[in-house]
Design a binder for these strands. Sequence first.
RNA 1: GCCCUCGUAGCUCAAAGGACAGAGCAGCAGCCUUCUAAGCUGUUGGUUGUGGGUUCGAGUCCCGCCGAGGGCGCCA
Length: 609
Amino acid sequence: MFEKEQQDIQFRIKAFCAENDIPDTDLKWLPIPFSGEWGISVSFFQMAANEAKAGKGKGLPVPQRAAQIAEMVKNYIGAISNISHIEAVKAYLNFYFSTPEYALRVVDTVLESGKSFGSGAPKGERVMVEYAQPNTHHSFHIGHARNTMLGETLARIVQFAGFETVRASYPGDIGLGVITVIWAYDKFYRGQEPQGVHERGQWLANIYVEATRLLETKEGETEDEKKRREAYDAERRELYKRWDAGDPQVRQLWLETREWSLDELKDILRILDVKIDVWFFESEVDEPSKAIVDELIARDIATDERPNGGAVIVKIDEKLGLTKEKYRTNVILRSDGTTLYLTKDLALAKVKFEQFHVDRSIYVVDVRQSLHMQQTFAILKLWGFPQAEKCYHLAYGFVSLPEGAMSARRGRVALFKDVYDEALTRVLAVIAEKNPGMPEAEREGVASKIGLGALSYSMLSVDNNKDIVFDINEALNFDGHTGPYIQNAYVRANSILKKFRAERHMPDQDNLPAGRFDYVLDIHEVELIEQITRFPNLVQQAAGEYRPLIIAAYVYDLANSFHSFYHAVQVLQTDTESVKIARLRLVAAAKQTIANALALLGITAPEVM
RNA sequence: GCCCUCGUAGCUCAAAGGACAGAGCAGCAGCCUUCUAAGCUGUUGGUUGUGGGUUCGAGUCCCGCCGAGGGCGCCA
């Protein structure tokens, strides 16, 4: 927001260097750590170190020489417009902005930009984010929720930062796990179908648990049990073959049950406000991927060991000319000719590159699949896709329960829908206690926003690579470093503005009167404005590093500043009309910025809570 | 055996190679006749696992060690 002033200063420092025979050094700009004022800071350590290295030093230790340079630059530079004063501290030179201009510029910018405050200029590059890849015929648990929230947030961040963004979902709708469910359903439950989208989806997941138990080798199993188990397994494999051969009956059964899962998935995506642009189904890339295997063999990238009873493999390290093992060797086609996860990912990447023309491709996938992803990208490179360089695996830590890893096979999972329902219950209880006057009709909607806010925030305020042990009491905590704390800041801002408009009979859509900050600002006003200023740069940083945490941490800091401001600074009670208007504008700017940052996290703040 | 993460307050987590390592939870002490107390203020709590190295400067980068988790050709 102050690029012009920064350039101006930089220009003068370069002139100073030239005149004093000091090596020209790239300047590093930093925020000033603590101050009651805003400003930017530049350090001279590097310059002093370079000078010493060039043999031009004055024999002083670097920190002292740097401090000396800072002092000299300060005297050299003189006055700069919009900079109120300059201060040399240690080896740093601090430039403080003129308070009224700075405050006015920030607040006016936010209010003029509205929802787009913080967004970046178009980058002319298309990014695809692939996330929400649950298996069908299973149920959506909080591990899937982390994946989906992370992917959606990332998509929102890169989009806001200026990239054209495509959201892709890739459900695993085929494989032995899926067939297992269909087998058990067909054998034991055919014709049954519970009422309710979620009930039906969860019912399928329970069938999977039951089927797994029937098909698993048990300790101390009797001859009869063994025979029965083997017979079941043979039936299951037979079913898979019939699916593979396109048997219409099996396909019908598969499509019907798949739809039940997808209905549930789509309802959860609706709850999470996720709008997928492109659906890729694993089953759809199965056939095309076989042709890719042939192509890779023909081009001597893959090795066909089938004549010797083996599979089709790619010796990735060898083909890349690596001597140390890094990507190793992996199978891209089973000896029986069926495809694997890796095979299908190759086919999918081809579609992404050729049909959707993506410049960058982000895969939001569990960290445990890191090697698989690296192998995929390496093969894409061997295959000749230049975009392989711009594939990025966003590896996130897995979600487990206090009692251990989740297991869909054992039915030991925390279902997203159960957690969500529990969140609603808890929020409604808090509303009944804290805001009994809230109309019944509003409560459900508010509870949903707050419950989801708490849940999303608890997941997004942890860095990508960290594992999460999911504790429902922590996830649904509403105090302190949480989503509701931030939403509450928004609500408080809203309530001030609402009251003001009511007093003046001013409609919501009317702009606030123009205001000026030509009074002595309270420290809390200063800090709030400073927080608001940080937002646009942090959006770029978060998009560049693919890290929602940056935004999550930021919006907490912003809300924290607002709460402190709210407590310490009177707005509507202010006697001076011009101060009141200026503060109202600041409140509106803070509200807007909180909303914009929360939106990137997929969190909506209610108007009241 | 090899590879990838990670190790920061009692607990959960932050910290572009920069100024004093910060929040929340938990603990302690205060603040509601006021724009919503889902809040605010104060306070207790640290040899950043360990030993070296690079650098003017290291929680951050490099190497060794210790410890935790994950992964390594026909699962996804």
